[in-house]
Amino acid sequence: MFGNESAIAVEVDLLGVRDIAPGLVQLALTLAAIMDKGGNATALANTGRELRTVMETLRKLAPVKVEDDDVDQLLQEGVERRVRARRT
């Protein structure tokens, strides 16, 4: 099982925000490392809350990835069929 720091590092890489907000990324990794070390419940709850807030901000900053889904593929196929139909 992943620790918090590993999980956050993976998510940060998937989001593609290391270059966009390096300070927030470092803060997220530091908070996750603190969570992994453990401590008293109140400190962990506060750290977890801050980590959640930082990650929410990073998710908002992440560039939108454009990926074709099945609907886009069907639309494209329809356009191609209409173009072929007009040629004949």
Score class of each variant (00 low, 15 high):
residue 70 D to N: 04
residue 51 L to S: 06
residue 27 L to S: 13
residue 1 M to H: 03
residue 47 T to G: 00
residue 17 V to R: 00
residue 11 E to H: 09
residue 84 R to D: 08
residue 57 T to R: 15
residue 60 K to F: 12
residue 6 S to E: 15
residue 54 V to R: 11
residue 50 E to M: 15
residue 87 R to P: 02
residue 65 K to Q: 12
residue 62 A to M: 01
residue 59 R to G: 09
residue 16 G to H: 04
residue 86 R to M: 14
residue 36 D to W: 01
residue 51 L to N: 02
residue 27 L to D: 13
residue 56 E to T: 13
residue 81 R to E: 10
residue 62 A to F: 09
residue 45 A to N: 13
residue 59 R to Y: 08
residue 61 L to M: 12
residue 6 S to F: 11
residue 46 N to P: 06
residue 24 L to A: 09
residue 15 L to E: 07
residue 75 L to G: 02
residue 52 R to S: 15
residue 53 T to Q: 15
residue 27 L to C: 11
residue 61 L to Q: 08
residue 50 E to I: 10
residue 18 R to F: 00
residue 16 G to N: 01
residue 75 L to R: 08
residue 5 E to K: 04
residue 86 R to K: 13
residue 78 G to E: 03
residue 56 E to R: 15
residue 81 R to F: 07
residue 65 K to W: 01
residue 14 L to M: 10
residue 13 D to Q: 02
residue 68 D to C: 03
residue 53 T to V: 14
residue 88 T to Y: 10
residue 50 E to A: 14
residue 86 R to N: 13
residue 68 D to S: 07
residue 85 A to Y: 10
residue 77 E to T: 00
residue 62 A to S: 08
residue 79 V to E: 12
residue 62 A to T: 02
residue 67 E to I: 14
residue 50 E to R: 15
residue 68 D to V: 04
residue 82 R to D: 06
residue 71 V to Q: 10
residue 85 A to W: 11
residue 12 V to H: 03
residue 60 K to E: 15
residue 68 D to T: 06
residue 59 R to W: 04
residue 82 R to F: 10
residue 47 T to K: 00
residue 69 D to K: 00
residue 53 T to I: 15
residue 29 L to I: 09
residue 29 L to Y: 03
residue 48 G to I: 10
residue 13 D to E: 08
residue 13 D to T: 01
residue 38 G to Y: 01
residue 26 Q to P: 03
residue 52 R to L: 13
residue 24 L to M: 14
residue 34 I to Q: 14
